[in-house]
Computed example of a mutant assay.
Amino acid sequence: MKKIDEYVDYVYNNVDGSKEEIQELKMEMKTHLQELVLELKSEGVEEEKAILMAIERFGDENEIRSIVGLLSKKHKLFAKWLLYVSLIFLTIAPIVFATLQSKEAQSLSEKSFASTKIHSILDNRDIVSDDIKKEIASVVHGTNYISDVLIYDVSNITNEELFEYVGNKEADYQYGITRQMVGELLPSGSGNDNWYVITERNSYHTLSVLSLLLLGFLYWSLFSIWAMINAYHERRLNLKWSFVFVLFNVAGYLVFRHISNKEDSWEGI
C-alpha cells in the first residue's frame, strides 16, 4: 500500500519531535488507514479505490499535516513555558529570601537601637513623665519596624518573679502605632533593676523561610513535570524515571539524558 506510506510520510514531513515518537505516530496512522482499507475491501470495493477512499475519509493531506504540526508545536510550547516558569521560580526564590532577610536584619537593628534608647531615657527615673512619653514616642516614630513599646516598673520585683509579673500585669506605660505589617509581630524584652521594656517589631524571618520553601517547591515540581513530559515524548517515561526526576530533579534529568544518548548511539550502530 504505497499510497498510504506516501500519505503518512507527507503528513509527518518536517514535524518536530523525536524520531521514535514520530515513527510510532506514523505506524499508528498507517495501521488505522490499513484497517479502513480492509473494511472497505470486505464491502466489495477494489483495493486501489479503497485506499483512495480511506485517505479521503481520513482527511486532506495538507489539513492533517497542519493539525499534526500545530499539535506538535503546542506540546513543545507548553513544555517550554513549563521550563521557563520553573526557572523563574528558581531565580526569584533567593532574591525574595535575601530581600526579606535584609528587612529582618534592619528590624533587629532597630529593635536593639530602640530598646537601648528607651532604657537610656528611663535611666534613674522613678516615673514615666509626659516628657519621657514624648521622647519614647519620638523613638518609635523614628523607626520603620517597631510598632509597640510596653514599659513595666520592676523596681520592687525580684528576678524570679519578673516574667510572671510581666506576663500577668498591665504595662505601666504603652505606646504603639499602626504599621502596614507583612511579616509577623514579634515581641522581645530587656530590663534593669528599675524598668523592663518590651518592644514589638515586624519580623520577616518566618516569611522569608516560607517564601524560599514555597518558591523552591514550585520550581522543583514544574521542572520534574517538564522532565516527565520530555521523557514521555521520547517514549522512555516509566515509574523509575518519574521517581528519579521527583527525587533528584536536574541531576536526575542529566542522568536520564546521558543514558538516553548512550542508548541512541548504540541503536545507530
Rank of each mutant, 00 (worst) to 15 (best):
I146K: 07
R201W: 00
F223T: 02
F245G: 02
R179W: 04
N194I: 06
T158M: 11
V140P: 03
S120I: 08
L71M: 12
Y7F: 07
K133M: 04
V68E: 04
K262Y: 15
E6M: 10
L214F: 15
K30Q: 10
M29C: 08
A50V: 06
W195Q: 07
M27F: 13
V96C: 10
D16T: 12
A171T: 04
N168E: 12
L87N: 09
M1S: 09
N62L: 06
G59Q: 02
K76Q: 14
I225F: 10
V45W: 03
E47Q: 12
F217H: 11
Y196A: 09
A50S: 10
D123H: 14
K76I: 12
S224F: 02
Y219L: 01
K41R: 14
E184C: 08
I88A: 10
S107R: 02
Q101Y: 08
W220K: 00
V45H: 04
V8L: 08
L162S: 05
N230E: 10
L25Q: 05
S208K: 08
Y12H: 05
K2M: 15
L90A: 11
K134Q: 13
I118F: 04
K133Y: 00
D193L: 11
G44C: 01
H141D: 12
D172C: 07
H75S: 13
G268N: 14
N230R: 09
Y173V: 07
S188K: 07
H205V: 12
A171N: 09
V154N: 02
D148N: 12
L212Y: 11
F248V: 07
K103M: 11
I55H: 04
V11E: 02
P187Y: 07
N13H: 14
Y12E: 08
S208T: 10
K169D: 00
L186H: 09
G189D: 02
N124A: 14
E28T: 11
S260N: 11
K117G: 01
E46P: 00
T99E: 05
N261D: 12
V250T: 13
V37G: 04
S102A: 15
T143L: 03
Y12G: 06
A93Y: 08
D193S: 15
N202P: 01
Y7L: 01
H119A: 09
L40G: 04
G189A: 10
D5L: 00
N238V: 10
V15M: 03
H258N: 15
Y232G: 10
V11M: 03
T91C: 09
H141K: 15
G191E: 06
M228Y: 06
S138E: 14
L254P: 01
T158F: 09
H233P: 00
I64F: 03
M53F: 02
V255Y: 07
F78H: 10
S112H: 11
A93L: 09
Y165V: 05
E104L: 01
S42T: 12
